[in-house]
Simulated scan of single mutants.
Amino acid sequence: MKLAEIPRVNNITKEDFIENYFKPQKPVVIQRAIEGWPAFDKWNLSYIKSVAGDITVPLYDNRPVQHKDGFNEPHAKMKMADYVDLLKREPTKYRIFLWNILKEVPELQKDYTFPDFGLKLLKGLPMLFFGGKDSYTFMHYDIDLANIFHFHFDGEKEVILFPQEETKNLYKVPHSLITHESIDFSNPDYKKWPVLEKASGFKTTLSHGEVLYMPEGYWHYMKYKSPGFSMSLRAMSRNPKNLAKASYNILIMRYYDVLMRKLKGQNWIDWKNEEAISRTNKNLEAFVKN
């Protein structure tokens, strides 16, 4: 894979952000945008444990999708206090994703403000994501193809991004938002996944207090180098093509996939994984012929 370092700035005006990153749809890391937030000084795993320790949270690991697991059902549940203790004690694959802090811990709302990057942020949808050392998310893109601002806290996180134009090289699973789950994007096996070598994307490592802007529909893979957590804020996509694709994903694709899981069970999931390989390798064959 050809991975360029994501550009970094200390801070940025909304005019510069719109002109240099939003309009051309390029990612950027803003290193000092939230140093005025109370969260910058307060938010770490110990603080989260103190304000949310009694809440039971859903946990997910890196196991491949199986029909018996159900759709988006958690693999385990645990008190937040116990989960934080686990993160600090040893590596674990258990992660929390899409945890709505507005609903669960209103007290945390006092620790941040909605930054003005020139885009209208959806204020009802701030989400938190937690992970232990070496846990990771599968390469995926978000169902609504939103513009995402990803704020990282406590620790370091490796990030790899690809624009939608690279989908043909990523072994995308049909009727889903993920690539083939067997791919290790931190150390890909090009003999097994040869088309990946053609993919061009971006990489960075996020540290405490840094903000990553991910443009509309960008594929993203994230791996925790140490225990930590992040918050995402989002703004709706502006590109009409992306809006149409988001509508299809939300209104048609996900319901069709759920229906086929019910009708065909694990055979449907196995077929999709096989098609991800077959369709992508056909792109390589066409490329070689030309």
Rank of each mutant, 00 (worst) to 15 (best):
E5K: 13
V105A: 06
Q31N: 13
N242Y: 14
E15Y: 15
L251W: 13
S232I: 14
T92I: 11
Y112I: 02
G118Y: 04
N100R: 07
M1F: 05
E5V: 10
Y218V: 02
A276Q: 00
I96Q: 04
E285I: 13
A246T: 01
R63M: 14
D69V: 03
L259G: 11
D85K: 11
H150R: 01
K172Q: 11
V57E: 10
K133F: 03
E35D: 08
N20Y: 08
H208L: 05
I55D: 08
M1R: 02
Y94K: 01
H208E: 07
V29D: 08
L177V: 12
S226D: 10
L59I: 13
Q266W: 04
D54W: 09
Y224L: 07
Y21A: 04
A4D: 14
Y224P: 00
N249C: 05
L128M: 15
K198S: 15
E275K: 13
L86P: 06
H220V: 08
Q164M: 15
H140P: 03
D134T: 06
M127N: 09
T137Q: 09
F129Q: 00
I269T: 04
L177P: 00
P163M: 10
E156R: 11
Y94H: 08
E35Q: 14
G155T: 02
N62A: 11
N100Y: 09
P38A: 12
D61K: 12
V9P: 02
K77R: 14
V211L: 15
Y83K: 04
M80H: 08
N283I: 03
Y136T: 00
Y47C: 09
I30A: 05
K282T: 04
G155C: 07
V57L: 12
M1A: 09
R95H: 02
I55E: 09
K49V: 06
R63C: 06
E181S: 11
K42L: 14
K123I: 12
Y248W: 15
Q31C: 13
Q31M: 13
K2A: 10
P24R: 11
T56D: 13
N249V: 02
